[in-house]
Design a protein around this nucleic acid. Structure first.
Lengths: 346, 346
DNA sequence: CTGTTAGCGCTTTCAC
DNA sequence: GTGAAAGCGCTAACAG
């Protein structure tokens, strides 16, 4: 049988309470007694039954998710996944609360983090904005011993405990490779090719990193491909449509478009309306209703995706583990860069 | 506060024991009493605390994994993942046993399934072989109320409870699309292209399905591509090397190779040794040490992968859920067709 | 500093 | 048929 606290108590010749104090590093145990107990624990190979402990404590993990109230499909999906987790709360001994903040607003995010700090929850997950004041706020959470996980967009060299999101440089490189290879046939062989990039804003780190990865692969491996100056669509479908339509008009030779942000509904409309003799190759991010339909129809050629459900479940698992001081299964928490062609749609 | 069995007992005016009998459908309760209790449960919105129940029962889930003792890296990796799960057993209240069987041997698999049936474990996971006697054995497990999960390779219209693996037709189609698009440039434009397919055995369903998906995409969308008769390497590196080397010798014009099974070490050696002026485009399955290295070096162009760790964890989650009659989170159990280029290696 | 005792939510004898 | 009581492994008062 697996040893229990009783076995340890007996073996060390102390009471349950003392064993418990040692197990939970509570004060009030003489060093000698402590080591006696620790020896017994090691000798018996004791491992604590977390479920029993949580039952006894009546423990419930309180987590806060701070999400931007952005109205693009990806963020809406992320919200839904958190709500799904809330629905499962009772079975998972969690209590999860969502705080909505205005997008791209560091001050609002800092405010939210401060409020959370006052609440002292078991953990916080948030979509980071890369700004010094945000890093400072995260530092304060760390000092207070509250585990933090960044979601979707990370904070560089910060004190967050974990990042639940994709490697955006790798994503950009992947897009670059696909673009280069897919273009090779119809265009490159003859006369090189011109490629447009549509971003949301160069202010957010994930977009900058994707551009960086994309550009470096093109530069290294596909010197015949010319990248036009970045178009900024602010993740807004209407604006995206305008800037893309405009670009297609001005550059009749655009052979490919890499959309590294959101607002793809507009991009799709612009491409469809352009009615070009030779449709440009389009690579976009995030599988949503519109990108999925465009992929099936052949308007988009490939979609790079991050699984919001995985990110949310991972964030919760990691926060729980951090709250308990337990290790995580690294492979389970790695968020993949999913590549979808029309053939492997889920 | 969440209602407990005590609240139900009080509200229904019965004892804890009776509530428990109703909750677990045990006999010895008059219909009237039963419905009184059921009403209380509904009225209070009671949900059972599984952790507490398992603690009281001293329950531990006993699972058996039946794995082919194949010596390719993928299967070795799968074994390791199961061993990882075994290492976590105590924390997860599971007791997992591995049964090794000779590969591609339906009789051996049936024998193993029969032995398992006699043991009456809480659940079984196995790499299926598509044969009537296997389906029959699974039927017997189902009758005995033992949940079953197929791993990696499925059993068609069978009574298994769940399949933890990828959609192999979609995987084949994806490989076909990538092959077609990647080939377009250097080869197709001029004179069409010849492609070789290396499989393990046409006896296993996953290999047949991948071939089917691959062939149909090529047929539909890349009529210039000619697929040579399938090479069978029995997932064995040495044999794979021989058959591939032989094929490359006989068909100097091979422009692409789709390796839809295992034994890629041999394939890689054959391609490297062939020293062709123009290296064929290679698409393979399963990210292992050797395919990863080949991808990085440019010997392999793309790898389709199924995450063995995800499959094993998923199988365990599903078996637990089935054993408890609980629902699963569909999105969490979908095994993705991972596509790796050299740019998005994990 | 250490031990005793009750109890978390559920199941399980064993009486009645 | 039904109920009272003990206990799963752990924690939390409260005494000493």
């Amino acid at each position: 049988m697996k040893p229990t606290v009783h076995d340890i108590a007996k073996s060390a010749g102390v009471s349950l309470a003392t064993v418990d104090r040692v197990l939970n590093d509570r004060p009030g145990v003489r060093a000698v007694t402590r080591s006696k107990v620790e020896e017994a624990i090691a000798a018996l190979g004791y491992v604590r039954d977390l479920a029993a402990a949580n039952l006894a404590k009546g423990r419930t993990y309180s987590f806060v998710f701070i999400l931007p109230e952005n109205d693009n499909s990806f963020m809406i999906g992320l919200h839904e996944e958190v709500r799904g987790a809330i629905a499962r709360s009772s079975a998972e001994r969690t209590h999860i609360r969502i705080i909505d903040v205005p997008p791209f607003d560091p001050d609002a995010l800092v405010d939210a983090l401060e409020k959370v700090l006052a609440e002292k929850p078991s953990g916080v997950a948030f979509v980071a904005i890369d700004a010094p004041e945000v890093r400072a706020a995260v530092g304060r959470l760390k000092e207070a011993g509250i585990p933090t996980v960044t979601l979707v967009s990370d904070l560089p060299d910060a004190s967050r405990d974990h990042y639940a999101g994709i490697d955006n440089i790798a994503a950009g490189r992947t897009a670059g490779s696909l673009m280069g290879r897919f273009l090779s046939g119809p265009f490159l062989a003859e006369r090189g090719a011109t490629v447009a990039v549509l971003a949301g804003s160069m202010l957010v780190r994930d977009h900058r990193e994707r551009l960086e990865g994309f550009s470096s692969v093109i530069g290294e491996s596909y010197p015949n491909v010319l990248i036009l100056p970045v178009l900024e669509g602010r993740d807004d479908p209407a604006l995206a449509e305008t800037v893309v339509a405009d670009a297609l008009r001005r550059h009749a030779d655009i052979a490919g478009i890499y959309s590294l942000g959101a607002g793809n509904r507009g991009l799709i409309r612009a491409v469809q309306k352009a009615g070009m003799s030779r449709r440009p190759l389009v690579i976009a991010h995030e599988l949503t209703a519109s990108t999925r339909a465009a992929l099936a129809e052949g308007v988009i050629d490939a979609v790079l995706n991050q699984d919001a459900g995985h990110e949310v479940r991972s964030a919760i698992r990691v926060l729980k583990a951090k709250a308990d001081g337990l290790p995580v299964i690294a492979g389970q928490e790695r968020i993949r860069i999913d590549i979808f062609l029309k053939d492997n749609l889920p």
